[in-house]
Nucleic acid binder design. Structure first.
Lengths: 232, 232
DNA sequence: CGATGTGAAGACTTTCACAGCA
DNA sequence: TGCTGTGAAAGTCTTCACATCG
């Protein structure tokens, strides 16, 4: 239980999977399961067991040979590694369709990311209430970020306004941005951006669909190229 | 302009970037730009120029040495490769918070993915109107999928209902699923799933934040491990 | 000359396979 | 005995560097 680890750098690919493991481990824990092997976890996550072991080995040696992993302890360790041992306030920029949905959604608070504020540049949106939070003017962003020690910002503006939103977030002191706009944000080195773009996801899917159609329509020439799904 | 290509398998990593290139090329095209070099594209996409060239080389040799790429032609070729030369109807399962936001959002139609139907298992939601589309009962899913030739389904249900939603989609004939629930969906081989999970994204960001804090609080021992953002 | 297209090198990720420990 | 933890092999992705061509 000592907070004395923080070892080697964890590979990006592993960091992206830890939340998935955490999710499913928590779910099994709540169902009363106390121990799981890497095989078990692998089956639940639809990945290879060796990958699970490698991933977990990056955060420490928390398994028991011949037995498996203690679910509760593993949940604790992964949580700590992901920085979930305390809350991270977030600010949302953009109170349109998406901003409202995100604010009203409740998923932020549930997961330990309280919404410190929702901001918009449009005065007609200011002072409306979204998800129990009052929309503030974008000019108030720096104050709130500083006062509430916010380090994560969510960009939920139209594409055209996203770069400005990001610039303001960075200037205010935010160092991680979750971007929902269809734009490649340019930010200084040291700021982390993750973009979630509905259009990109759909286009990746339609690429696969189109291949299936092409294959079915009779593009003989390639032997075994059935588009593999990412889950089994 | 001949539809006679469909060559070698394109790497997943490249497929994931093509939509980003397409987006920014379209944007420049609309701004009147007719030609761009791989350097230019790389700068706009915040990636390496060699990567842009490699990526584009997978879909064909559409550049001109000493000059660059004709933006309009490239837009056309990428679109074709992604299967955007025709529309792909989608169905949305789940008419709750998220389903409503997605349905009302308009992004689907705009991008060539018309919403063929929104479905929910809850009778109280059936017949309400979301984004101009009337919510139907989940039992009507197979009929609509068949009639409208839907191959892409969106899962916008609570986590607990997501696997059932996916099963129904697959049974109805859908072969690509965009999953917004925090669950690893299990689907048959041949079905593509992409999961977009707010919680996962936030946790990846807080991992990076937590490292920054750890570094600042004085975890000397590692030399150069400033968390690199994904954009410049 | 200048920018593409691409082999080859390098980096990262996944998987194998097995030593080693509970 | 059974499952973890991990070197080493295999596979994938990125980057370099340059021959090639408009």
């Amino acid at each position: 239980m000592s907070p004395q680890h923080r070892r080697r750098r964890i590979p990006d690919a592993t960091v992206a999977r830890l939340p998935v493991y955490l999710q499913l481990l928590t779910e099994r824990m709540d169902a009363g399961v106390t121990n799981l092997s890497s095989e078990d976890i692998a089956a639940l996550a639809a990945v290879n067991a060796a990958k699970v072991r490698k991933d977990l080995s990056y955060i420490g040696t928390y398994g028991t040979r011949g037995v498996g992993y203690d679910v509760e302890y593993l949940v604790y360790q992964i949580s700590r590694e992901l920085g979930l041992d305390h809350e991270w306030s977030v600010v949302i920029v953009g109170a349109g369709n998406l901003g409202q949905a995100l604010g009203g959604y409740g998923g932020f608070n549930e997961r330990g990311y309280p919404v410190a504020g929702i901001f918009d540049i449009d005065d007609s949106k200011v002072d409306t209430v979204v998800g129990g939070v009052c929309v503030q003017h974008l000019d108030d962003l720096p104050r709130v970020v500083a006062q509430r020690q916010v380090s994560i910002g969510v960009v939920a503006t139209p594409a055209a306004a996203a770069q400005d939103a990001a610039d303001r977030l960075v200037r205010a002191g935010v160092t991680s941005i979750l971007n929902f706009a269809s734009v490649v944000l340019s930010v200084p080195h040291g700021v982390t951006v993750r973009t979630v773009d509905l259009g990109v996801e759909l286009q990746i899917l339609s690429y696969h669909e189109q291949r299936r159609v092409a294959a079915a329509t009779g593009f003989r020439s390639m032997s075994e190229d059935a588009p593999r799904g990412r889950s089994a």
